[in-house]
Design a protein around this nucleic acid. Structure first.
Length: 112
DNA sequence: TGCATGACCTGAG
DNA sequence: GCTCAGGCCATGC
């Protein structure tokens, strides 16, 4: 197994702008493995445990739900981090997901 | 080697 | 418009 996949995931997550969030599917799609969106979650889970500075709190599922909050030290940590970035979180869910959503492909657009 | 599970997504009813 | 079931890939036992 190439760890490149994980590195790619970490890279994309690190590139998420301040105050923005994205979804596992978007990242998976960006990496060319749209059907392996579950692996993105695994990668983030491992990276979070690893202790790397990955803003995994900016990654939510399609509905904007903080499905990975349990991977953090505390239930409130993820919510706290998001709120500190100006993102409203209600009931473990990002409010106005459309407003704060960030697509990795936008990065390519900017680069091009 | 094989089965079961997971921070999900998409399509059909 | 919402709910249910299937599928995808990698990892662990």
């Amino acid at each position: 197994m190439e760890v490149d996949f994980y590195q790619q995931v970490f890279q994309v997550v690190k590139l998420i702008p301040y105050g923005k969030v994205t979804s596992y599917g978007a990242i998976a799609k960006y990496l060319g493995t749209a059907r392996a969106s579950r692996m993105v979650g695994w990668a983030l889970n491992n990276c979070n445990i690893g202790g790397d500075n990955i803003p995994a709190h900016r990654v939510v599922n399609r509905n904007g739900i903080l499905s990975g909050k349990s991977a953090f030290k505390g239930e409130h940590v993820m919510k706290d981090l998001l709120e500190s970035e100006g993102i409203e979180v209600v009931d473990d869910q990002v409010k106005d997901l459309k407003k704060h959503f960030w697509d990795p492909f936008e990065l390519d657009k900017e680069l091009q």
